[in-house]
Design a protein around this nucleic acid. Structure first.
Length: 584
RNA sequence: CGGGGCGUAGCGCAGCGGUUUAGCGCGCAUGGUUCGGGACCAUGAGGUCGUGGGUUCAAAUCCCACCGCCCCGACCA
């Protein structure tokens, strides 16, 4: 037997001889649905917090996802390569991200004391490659990608593989001569990503997003609505507006309170918005909360927000800088002469004051009096406060109106699956990746960066399609297409028919798990459902006697009954039907 | 880092006002009976009770410290 044939036969996984470990009970550490399914089905296993082992079935799924990603990226002309996971410090110093990424990066020293990190992403390295290999505008555009493990020392990993400290990522990078080129590369990726997620059977949305540590250019997120997600997206029920909560802009209700002169009120021990509004018997929208931010390298600033809204930290960081942090109590006392909960914007002209735009023209408001245990009533922003600028600084909340069409916005839990960014020239300028244009002029390469987390696709499918019995894999990424339950496998007739059917299936390109364990039927049926294999064929003495075999569809629970000669044909038909359904 | 929960066999758990030999269910092994939705009988293997220290004649059990895991928050492409 040639080696090739031997591997071809491995298309068949014999349950009794495979590393498949299903758990009869839910593992206690798993609370989210995808985590539960992935652990119980034995697809993954934890090693330490945030780091997982991908067992054979889980790895098969990931490999099939990889294949789809490769096909779609190759189709837009992207070239695959593989970069190292280890990178020396100086490369990251040049981009400024050795500090910016900070503790989120795994860092270590080699035996000579030289410092390295395990790459959390690869903009620095890719820009280095571009610097060496791109000379002329004639070399552009190009798209490069890799599928590789990324390392991020997350503050808190959670939900199994959804937020982990080591994960597989497809990261691609586009190199263009100008913004128009970048826009084209960006659109190509948008199309490729759309195809990828559709082929993986995921129901997804494309939303506007924040660039975060990547930069401040345009970025879009591919997200899935799931109950167990860790992010939130705002979706307009009426128009096509959708945005990640970090950047979503809504229109809030405006309240008109009667104007009056400023007076102090005694509010002993009442600090929070809820405490003060309860105590004074007013709605939280009647309050102005003051949040004091300081930064090591920038001037302190006071942010004013209406009491019924939360501050959008993402906007603070992208607008004012990453170094801004809410001040501690001691600093607040030093600047305001009052404790947190009692500070306010009146007579604070020496501090930069930015207010949320919902406060423009607000009057009759209540805010801290800069005196412990006192607030002030009758605040008129225009009259009493020296606001430097009004900006949208609040997080959208349920009931806000869409900024595009004024319909109501809905908020949904979501899971980030992929993110595409227009980087622009940030990295190429810092790291000197330039080209000569037709006029012989040296210009920085205009770059884009695009990422997909592979495990999240797997987890997302569990979240969206999984049911009380376990996983439901789409035919495109299932670890195996057909699960054959052999009942009474020690019976010679049964074993004979099973053998025959398996031959026919593998000869026709099916991947098969055969459950040849000598166990009672229920155990095998339940495992087939837990493992989520789309098609299940049962071979047992009764079926052989009556020449009637059951094919069960995992997703719809339909049962199709066929005679022996039609098994192959029917399975082929069902398989193509399942593929067709993915494209609908 | 703050708050909460937990750590006893591969998995799920009981025992935890100190007491010979640490239990139960599932799984695993052997033999037998079964066999179309988590079978049954018999026998058996499997444990540094998270780690270290302390109290005590005696610690899984009481005390201290540490480690690890999960959840909430802070934080995060």
């Amino acid at each position: 037997m040639t080696l090739l044939l031997k591997y071809a036969i491995l298309q068949v996984m014999k349950f009794s001889k495979s590393c498949i470990n299903t758990l009869r009970e839910d593992p206690k550490e798993a609370e989210s649905k995808s985590h539960r399914i992935l652990l119980r089905g034995g697809f993954v296993r934890p090693l330490v917090s945030g780091i997982h082992i991908y067992l054979p079935l889980g790895w098969r799924i990931l490999m099939r996802i990889e294949k789809i990603i490769r096909e779609e990226l190759n189709r837009i002309g992207a070239q695959e390569m593989l970069m190292p996971a280890i990178c020396p410090r100086d490369v990251w110093e040049k981009s400024g991200r050795w500090i910016e990424y900070g503790d989120d990066m795994f860092k270590f020293k080699d035996r000579k004391g030289r410092e390295y990190c395990l790459c959390p992403t690869h903009e620095e390295i890719i820009t280095g490659i571009a610097r060496n290999s791109i000379r002329s505008y004639r070399d552009l555009p190009q798209i490069w990608y890799q599928i590789q493990i990324k390392y991020r020392d997350e503050l808190r990993s959670r939900f199994g593989v959804i937020r982990s400290r080591q994960f597989i990522m497809k990261d691609s990078y586009s190199l263009d001569r100008d913004d128009d080129g970048l826009s084209e590369s960006f659109e190509l990726h948008k199309q490729a990503y759309t195809n990828i997620y559709r082929r993986c059977g995921i129901d997804f949305e494309i939303v506007d997003a924040a660039g975060g540590l990547m930069g401040t250019g345009q970025s879009s997120e591919f997200v899935a609505r799931v109950d167990g997600g860790e992010d939130t997206i705002a979706i307009c029920a009426n128009c096509d507006y959708r945005a990640s909560l970090e950047v979503a802009q809504g229109i809030g209700k405006v309240f008109d309170f009667a104007d009056s002169p400023v007076t102090e009120v005694h509010t002993p021990g009442k600090r929070s918005v809820d405490e003060v509004s309860d105590f004074l018997k007013v709605g939280s929208e009647n309050l102005v909360k003051s949040i004091f931010y300081t930064a090591s390298d920038k001037e302190p600033m006071l942010i004013l927000l209406r009491g019924d809204y939360e501050i959008n930290e993402g906007v603070i960081r992208s607008k004012f800088g990453f170094s801004y942090k809410p001040a501690d109590a001691e600093t607040i006392v030093r600047f305001f002469g009052a404790e947190p909960g009692f500070i306010g914007p009146v007579n604070k002209d020496d501090i930069a004051i930015y207010a949320d735009d919902l406060l423009k023209g607000a009057k009759g408001m209540i805010t801290g009096a800069n005196k412990n245990d006192y607030h002030m009533k009758g605040l008129n922003l225009e009259r009493d406060v020296n606001v430097r600028e009004y900006l949208n600084l609040r997080v959208v909340k349920k009931g806000d109106a869409c900024s595009k069409c004024r319909s109501e916005l809905e908020l949904h839990n979501s899971l980030e699956l992929g993110h595409i960014f227009k980087l622009g020239t940030r990295y190429s300028k810092l790291l000197g990746a330039t080209f000569l244009d037709e006029n012989g002029e040296e210009k920085p390469i205009v770059m884009g960066s695009y990422g997909i987390g592979l495990e999240r696709i797997m987890a997302c499918v569990c979240e969206q399609k999984g049911d009380e019995h376990g996983a439901v894999w789409p035919i495109s990424i299932t670890p195996s297409e057909v699960y054959i339950v052999v009942l009474n496998p020690l019976d010679n007739d049964v074993a004979g028919v099973a053998e025959e059917v398996i031959q026919a299936l593998t000869n026709n390109g099916f991947s098969v798990i055969i459950d040849d364990r000598d166990l009672s039927a229920g155990v095998k049926f339940n495992d087939s459902e837990l493992l989520g294999i789309p098609l299940r064929l049962t071979i047992g003495p009764k079926g052989i006697k009556n020449d009637s075999f059951d094919i069960h569809l995992r997703e719809t629970k339909e049962i199709v009954r066929v005679d022996k000669t039609s098994i192959l044909c029917k399975l082929q038909e069902l398989k193509s039907m399942l593929y067709r359904r993915l494209n609908e």
